[in-house]
Amino acid sequence: MDRPVLLHVAILLALTALGVGTARAASPTPSPARQAQLIHLVRQDCGACHGMQLSGGLGPSLSPAQLADRPDSSLVATVLQGRPGTPMPGWQAFLSASEAGWIITQLKQGFPPLPPCDPPAATC
């Protein structure tokens, strides 16, 4: 391999790394505090229709088995934009795309439980 080609590869590699880095920066994993808020939101407020155990209600079950065959991108779109013709509203006023993505990842793995007293309070 001659030097110009090597240089080329090196630059490409660098750009790729930079690209990956940029992508990561655009969809960061939510902070632990935000994750706690998201777990609360999903279990308590999504739970209004999907059930606190996410086993379904007026909204369908959100169990890992139920979601396994659905591509992440379509599930994220449902969370953010809702599903016309059903009661599912879009949540994009409250969630970023990366937060919706984190929720979908967690749902597919089995969603984390609520801590015993959530949100924390002196009364419990």
Partner: peptide, 13 residues
């Protein structure tokens, strides 16, 4: 009731 106007999102029934 509400004819012609866009429904607002319902986050809880």
């Amino acid at each position: 009731y509400g004819q012609g106007s866009e429904k607002l999102p319902v986050y809880k029934m």
